[in-house]
Structure formats: C-alpha cells, structure tokens
C-alpha cells in the first residue's frame, strides 16, 4: 500500500488530497473538500501532465526569442527532457502565432507552437 499526497489546485484552499494505492489500484481518496478535488487527484495520480511554456531562439527576428508552448499538456516527467530538445532548436523569422515550431516533441504527438508573432528584423 502506498499513499500519495497531492495538492489540489482547483481553488485557493489547496486541499492536501491523499490517494491510497494498492497494486496500481486506487483504494482510497481522502482530504478533498469538493468533487473537483477528487477528480483532480485521480488525474494527477494517474497521468500528471503540464503545458510547457518556454522560448525558442530566433534568427533574423525583431527579437532574439519567440515564446512557445506545448499545444497540449505533456507528461510532467518529460518537462526537462523536452527543454533539451527545444534548446537545440533555432527558427528563422518571421514567425506567426500558432505556427508549429517543433513537431511531435519526444514522440508525445504534441507540437511546440509559437505564441507570438515575430517579424523579420
């Protein structure tokens, strides 16, 4: 039996929800004060994912960086790995908001997309 403490981000209360797991099965959930918390804790236990917002280097742009994000959440455990791939990348201006900058990062089938227009210098 393992216990996982998960802080619910559903509201400022930040309830500490304890998920009890036995042989990969959730056997008990405690500590939430509303249904949001229960749902959140289950998701966060089973498949914690995050949007990754960061930047990619730009050549010949009005700014040296374009802000980007993962178009969909990716597994939390991949955030720093993804940064390594993103760090290697350099794009050439102009870039339009929504443009795909990197496809299918770390085989997650999630793209990295631009979140701002960057004109040519």
């Amino acid at each position: 039996m393992e216990e996982h403490d998960i802080i619910c981000t559903g509201c400022p209360k930040g309830c500490r929800v304890t998920v009890t797991v036995e042989k990969d099965e959730i056997t008990d959930i405690k500590g939430f004060e509303c249904p949001t918390g229960k749902e959140y804790a289950i998701n966060e236990y089973k498949n914690p994912t995050r949007i990754l917002p960061t930047t990619v280097r730009v050549k010949e742009g009005e700014f040296p960086l374009v802000p980007v994000k993962t178009a969909k959440p990716i597994p939390k455990s991949l955030l720093l790995e993804a940064m390594k791939v993103i760090a290697e990348k350099e794009v050439i201006a102009p870039i339009k908001i929504g443009d795909t900058v990197i496809e299918n990062i770390l085989d997650t089938s999630v793209n990295i997309v631009a979140t701002r227009n960057i004109e040519k210098k």
Binding site: R57, P64, K84, I86, A87
Partner: peptide, 9 residues
C-alpha cells in the same frame, strides 16, 4: 538563452 541547457547536455 538555452546556453546552460546546451552546455549541460
């Protein structure tokens, strides 16, 4: 930007 990550890699 990104230099620290690239160096580490």
């Amino acid at each position: 930007s990104k230099q620290l990550i690239l160096e580490k890699t």
